[in-house]
C-alpha cells in the first residue's frame, strides 16, 4: 500500500509531468536510469505484453465500436451504416432498460451481501484460536470452484423437482420456481453469486484484520468498552483500503464474472428471466445474431464501467486511509 492517498487526478498529473520530462529528455534520477545500447531493445521487451493487450483488448474493442454503427446481415453477407440507431434502439427498448435496472439491483445486492458476509465471517474467524486453520480452509475452499460449476451446484440446490432449497421453501408453503418465476430466479442468482464470492472477500478481510496491530486493538480495548464501537471506530477504518479494493473487485465480479452462473441458471429456460447486461450482450449478439445491437450495448457497458471506476476513485478513495 502506498503511503499517500493516490487519486486519479494525481496519477494524471504525475503521468503528464513524466511524459513532458521524457519528451524533453530529462530523467528524474539519471543514475538509476537503465541504458540500452539500441533504442529498439526496450520495445522488444515490451512487445509480448503489448501484443497480448493489442490482440485481445484493443482490436476487439475497436471492432465493437465500429460494428456498433452498422446493421449487420444475420448471415454475415453485408453491413449497412446506421449511425447511432443501434444506440437509440438499445436505450429506448424496454427490455434493455429493465435488464439495466436489474443489473444495478443485482450489483448492489450481491456486492453488499458478499462484502458484508465476508467481513462478518472474517471477523468471527479472526477471533477463533483453536482450529483456526480448519475454519479458514473450509471457508476459503469454495473459492476453488469454477463459476460454471458453482452455477451447476446452485442449480441442483434450486432444482424444481429435487432441490433441497425448493423443498425447504415448500415446508413454509412457498412454491419456489427457479427458471420460471422472475424473482425466484433472481433470488437464486443472488444466492449463488454471493456464495461464490464470499471466500474471496473473506481472505482479503481476514488478512486485513490480521494486519491491524495487536497493540492498537488493545489500546482500543482500554479506550472503549463496547465491542461494536471499537469495530466501527478502529477496525473498520483500518480495513478501509481492503474494503475499497474489494468494492471495486466485487462490482466488476457482479457485472462480468457472474456470466457463467447466469448462463447455467437461465439457459434453456422459458423467457422472462432476469439477467445482467453482459449476458444480454451475449444473448442478443450470439443467440439473436444482432451483432450491431449487441456491439452498441457492449460499448454502453464499457462507458458505464469506466464512469463507475472514475467515480469510485474520485469520491470513495479520498475517504480511505492508507496506514
Amino acid at each position: 500500500m502506498t503511503d499517500t492517498p493516490f487519486t486519479i487526478a494525481e496519477a494524471e498529473t504525475t503521468l503528464f509531468a513524466r511524459l513532458r520530462r521524457w519528451w524533453s529528455g530529462e530523467t528524474a534520477n539519471p543514475v538509476k536510469r537503465v541504458q540500452f545500447d539500441r533504442p529498439l531493445t526496450p520495445w522488444m521487451f515490451l512487445l509480448p505484453q503489448l501484443a497480448v493487450v493489442a490482440i485481445f483488448f484493443y482490436w476487439p474493442s475497436v471492432q465493437a465500436v465500429t460494428s456498433s454503427f452498422y446493421l449487420e446481415d444475420p448471415f454475415g453477407f453485408g453491413a449497412t451504416f446506421v449511425a447511432l440507431d443501434n444506440y437509440t434502439d438499445a436505450l429506448t427498448s424496454r427490455g434493455y432498460l429493465s435488464t439495466a435496472a436489474f443489473t444495478a439491483f443485482f450489483c448492489v445486492v450481491v456486492t453488499a451481501l458478499s462484502l458484508g458476509l465476508g467481513l462478518l465471517l472474517a471477523v468471527k474467524a479472526d477471533k477463533v484460536i483453536r482450529g483456526a486453520e480448519t475454519y479458514k480452509t473450509l471457508l476459503i475452499s469454495v473459492y476453488a470452484i469454477a463459476p460454471p460449476v458453482a452455477g451447476l451446484i446452485g442449480m441442483m440446490f434450486f432444482d424444481m423437482h429435487m432441490g433441497p432449497f425448493t423443498q425447504m421453501a415448500a415446508w413454509f408453503g412457498y412454491d419456489l420456481k427457479v427458471g420460471i418465476d422472475y424473482w425466484d430466479t433472481a433470488s437464486a442468482l443472488i444466492v449463488i453469486s454471493v456464495w461464490k464470492q464470499i471466500p474471496y472477500n473473506f481472505i482479503f478481510f481476514l488478512s486485513g484484520l490480521q494486519s491491524v496491530p495487536v497493540s492498537v486493538r488493545e489500546a482500543a480495548l482500554i479506550d472503549a468498552k463496547s465491542g461494536w464501537r471499537r469495530f466501527c471506530d478502529i477496525t473498520l477504518p483500518l480495513l478501509a483500503p481492503t474494503a475499497f479494493f474489494l468494492l471495486v473487485i466485487n462490482i466488476t465480479y457482479t457485472m462480468f464474472d457472474t456470466f457463467p452462473i447466469i448462463d447455467v441458471i437461465v439457459k434453456d429456460k422459458p423467457a422472462n428471466n432476469p439477467m445482467t447486461l453482459v449476458y444480454k450482450v451475449y444473448l442478443d449478439g450470439f443467440k439473436g445474431n444482432d451483432i450491431g445491437g449487441s456491439s452498441a450495448q457492449s460499448v454502453i457497458l464499457m462507458v458505464v464501467v469506466a464512469l463507475l471506476t472514475v467515480l469510485q476513485f474520485r469520491f470513495l478513495e479520498r475517504r480511505v486511509h492508507y496506514g
Binding site: S215, V216, E218, A219, I222, P237, L238, A240
Partner: peptide, 14 residues
C-alpha cells in the same frame, strides 16, 4: 480506570 502506554505507541493511525 487505567491508562496504558504501549511500547510501539499503539496510536490509531487514521
Amino acid at each position: 480506570d487505567i491508562a496504558m502506554v504501549f511500547q510501539n505507541y499503539a496510536l490509531y493511525p487514521h
